[in-house]
Amino acid sequence: MVPLYIICMSRVVVVKYSGNADNKFLDKKQYRRLLETALGKLARDADYKTYIMQRFPKGAVGMKTNCLAAFNPTLSPLIDALSELITKNSKIDNNDLIVWERTNKELKRAGYKLNASSFGRRYLGTDSSGVGYDDSQFYSAGKVDSMVTRILTRMVDHNINLGVLKHHSIAGMSAGMKNMYGAVHNPNKYHGNNCSPFTADINNLEPIKSKHRLTVIDAVRVQYDKGPGFNSKYMGYYNGLVLSENPVAADSVALMILDHLRRENGLPQLAATSQKVKYLEAAEKIGLGTANIKSIDLQVAVVASDGTTSTGDLF
């Protein structure tokens, strides 16, 4: 029997793909295996199908990509795999899936084809015609006062944060929470003090917090230094995904992975540099989630190329 304190802990699932010795990009099928395994683990006693049905029962689902760095964005096979899982296991139609970003330009630069029509999965930047930022009110949380994209305030019922794990020279790390800078109209105002407490406060804005359902951080290829702009010299390979319903816990585990890759490559831990990731502590303070690894129910699974699954270690 699972102890109660474990049930109450935030669960983070790390799922790794062991069949990628060449460190290639994963395809849709491989991402799908990882997602099925991870979502099954998040379901605790149920399976991934039940989890999807319960987590995304109906309505429209947003998927916030990270396309800032055109050569290291949220990848299409991951989006395709996740979208298929949702549409096949819930009542949500493909057209009710909205893959979104700050601008159309960023989506296009990352290779996505825009689609605002009523057919097929939608791909929208906040600057798309008829979208924009919700100017009916300023949302406030802590030190943040911002307008939020209408995609979140008006168009979707649930949001999945599809971040990409990478080094960030100001925040220290960009994973899930930093990705939500793309939801507000004035992200440039929030980069002081290693983006803290701003990253926490942005994620605490009502539309962002209330519609957040899942964080999926792509840690297959991880730029461990000189980010967030792409720099192939600092690309490491973890071949895994980090999933959690708790955005703070997901980023806390992602930080361990980033630090691990930095250590492997002879770089100091971020906490020992001027790029210490400060926003996690700030997020924990305002009750957004747990940043303490000891309070996180961390599950690590390994998926082999033949689809078999086993438990594993984080490193």
Partner: peptide, 19 residues
């Protein structure tokens, strides 16, 4: 004195680092 990495902008939002 904003310190700005590649593809990021200063606080003003109108000045950007590219490479």
């Amino acid at each position: 004195h904003c310190r700005i990495t590649d593809l990021e902008r200063g606080y003003c939002g109108v000045r950007e680092n590219r490479d």
